[in-house]
Design a protein around this nucleic acid. Structure first.
Length: 548
RNA sequence: GGCCCCGUGGUCAAGCGGUUAAGACAUCGCCCUUUCACGGCGGAGACAUGGGUUCGAUUCCCGUCGGGGUCACCA
């Protein structure tokens, strides 16, 4: 009896691997094209780190006219979470990161290298596991999980390196005959890789991001097929990325230390190994210690958070690109109107260690991104957000024509307003332009320098009766406020006031403040001329009457 | 603990043996301005540490300290 008999006994129905090799041929792409993927496991919501990887992967594929695909790694059925796949697919779509190939919904895949869900590839993994067994490069292991723990405990007690290797790999030397007999007797087993590695030898790895990294060879006989017949991550990675003809594996750097194993697997399977790019995670400061953004502790770890807060997808992507390649910022400044698709990402410029997540910076980018939008776009996005998250704002925005005027204030000129960082800022920013909302809420009138009620009333009355005219242009409009200041005995120019502080009680700016506060109940607003234009005389008058 | 990686202002980071050690965000001041947001100008603020190597180290080497990752029938 030989390895072949053993392999046939374990996987009687498995196809010969030549079947798959022919079915999934080399891709016919131009030289240098990168085939890469996002390969999450469906264990919950999409993490910002996953989005980060996807942004990078998609960009690299696009830049090189390659392929970006989505593969679902669901080989651990215990951890699977309902709707997770749907969530992954829609998150990518929301951020404009649709894969060229791979899963496009909970159940459907697109492309010629599928299935793109690992649980549907069971027979493929088994074919390759069988192939390894036939070659004596893998073997059935009869150790129970409990025995495994015992071995580990002994190793820890003896302070030696833990794991299934060398003399500890009990089943490695079980003869074919014995193995066959034990299997026939119904003994439970898993399949392990027979590692040809030696811990005292080094391997060299060149990572596209981390650079040159040397490791000891892998000598662990890791399991490749679990008790449930599904492969472990390592084995599935080797088989899938070979068969899907991946050229560049982009993944989190928690995988870096598995590289020796993976390279060995590729080698023993007779595959050409892909290149690797291990990305440093996005971190968070936690009491002086850095740690990865955590799904459990940090709201901002979930991609859905950004949608809920109304932070534009574009801002999130720009921020991520910023972390990826710090020269993005310079590029952006030099190319204000270009699409980020035109920016060329370089892997070797990526940071080797993890960056702290900076919400302040993200929001700053959000402000800039939104300031570039037209009133129409601001309206559309704000409306879309309001429909999902803010009923009151949604109602305010029903009158599109009016909303467009409001959003049009100081927008579209060379120095557009930068006061909205995220859609959830919008309501607070515009609510005073809506009578219903404005009058329904409790308002303070924080008058400043001129706070005497009589004087305020006089200013307001004079202004609306004598000076205000719907048809004034901005210069005339302001000229009149100056005249009003003069009539009140205040300085018509701020400079004059500053030159003669004792001579005047107040100046034109203070008069403006009175008007502004009466109008909006706040001391800070965008351009008051434009606000008055939109409000019109009747509403201005009404506000003056109520604002005293 | 073993192995691997990393250590430039508060944060993200240029730098790659000789620099007044860029830039961005944040912060402070001034200017612009009827307020604010913007914009402009300016300020403060950094090479973890100790040894080497060198005419000269932020840069190269070693140690120390600090941080991160990994050591599953999880990915």
């Amino acid at each position: 009896m030989n390895y072949k008999d053993l392999a046939d006994l374990i996987f009687p129905d498995a196809k010969d691997i030549s079947y798959y090799e022919e079915k999934y041929p080399e891709r016919n792409l131009k030289e240098g094209a990168i085939v890469t993927r996002f390969a999450p496991s469906p264990t919950g919501f999409v993490h910002i780190g996953g989005l980060y990887q996807s942004v990078i992967a998609k960009k690299l594929a696009n830049q090189t006219e390659g392929v970006f695909f989505l593969r679902i790694e669901d080989t651990d059925q215990k951890r699977e979470v309902e709707n997770a796949i749907k969530d992954i697919v829609t998150s990518l779509k929301d951020f404009g990161l649709e894969p060229d190939e791979g899963m496009i919904s909970e159940t459907e895949g697109k492309g010629n290298y599928g299935p793109y869900k690992q649980s549907e590839r069971k027979e493929i993994y088994q074919a390759y596991a069988k192939y390894l067994i036939e070659q004596g490069k893998a073997y059935p292991c009869f150790c129970t999980p409990e025995e495994g723990e015992e071995i580990r405990a002994k190793q820890e007690a003896a302070k030696i390196r833990p794991g299934y290797y060398g003399v500890w790999a009990k089943c490695r030397n079980v003869t074919v005959e014995e193995a066959i007999e034990r299997i026939k007797n119904g003994e439970k087993y898993i399949v392990r890789f027979k590692s040809p590695g030696r811990e005292d030898r080094k391997i060299k790895h060149h990572d596209a991001i981390k650079g040159n990294v040397d490791f000891p060879e892998n000598d662990q006989d890791i399991v490749i097929i679990k008790a449930d017949g599904l492969p472990t991550y390592h084995f599935a990675h080797a088989v899938d990325d070979h068969l899907m003809r991946t050229t560049l594996v982009i993944r989190g750097d928690e995988w870096l230390s598995s590289v020796p194993l993976h390279l060995q697997l590729f080698h023993e399977l007779g595959f050409k190994a892909p290149k690797y790019a291990h990305i440093a995670p996005i971190m968070k400061n936690d009491n002086g210690n850095k740690r990865k953004l955590s799904k459990r502790k940090d709201a901002e770890a979930a991609v859905s958070y950004y949608e809920e807060e109304g932070i534009p997808e574009e801002a999130v992507k720009e921020y991520l690109l910023n972390i990826a390649n710090s020269n993005f910022e310079n590029w952006r400044r030099a190319n204000k109107d270009k699409s980020i698709d035109e920016f060329e990402l370089q892997l070797n410029k990526m940071s080797v260690s993890g960056a702290l997540f900076d919400m302040v910076k993200l929001l700053d980018i959000g402000k800039t991104v939104i300031s570039r939008y037209t009133a129409e776009k601001v309206y559309d996005e704000a409306k879309k957000w309001a429909e999902r998250h803010d009923e009151e704002l949604n109602k305010m925005l029903e009158d599109k024509e009016y909303a467009l005027k409001v959003f049009g204030i100081e927008r579209g000129n060379k120095k557009p307003r930068k006061d909205i960082a995220k859609w959830s800022d919008v309501k607070e920013n515009i609510e005073y332009m809506y009578d219903d909302v404005f009058y329904s809420k409790k308002r303070d009138y924080p008058y400043q320098v001129i706070s005497d009620k009589e004087k305020i009333k006089k200013i307001l009355d004079l202004y609306i009766e004598k000076y205000y005219n719907d048809n004034d242009d901005k210069d005339t409009w302001f000229e009149k406020i100056k005249e009003l200041a003069g009539e009140m005995g205040y300085a018509k120019e701020v400079k004059e006031f500053k030159a003669n502080p004792d001579k005047y009680e107040a100046h034109v700016g203070d008069v403006s403040t009175v008007l502004r506060v009466a109008l909006t109940s706040r001391t800070n607003t965008p351009d008051m001329y434009e606000i008055m234009k939109i409000l019109g005389k009747d509403r201005i008058k009404e506000r003056f009457e109520k604002g005293i």
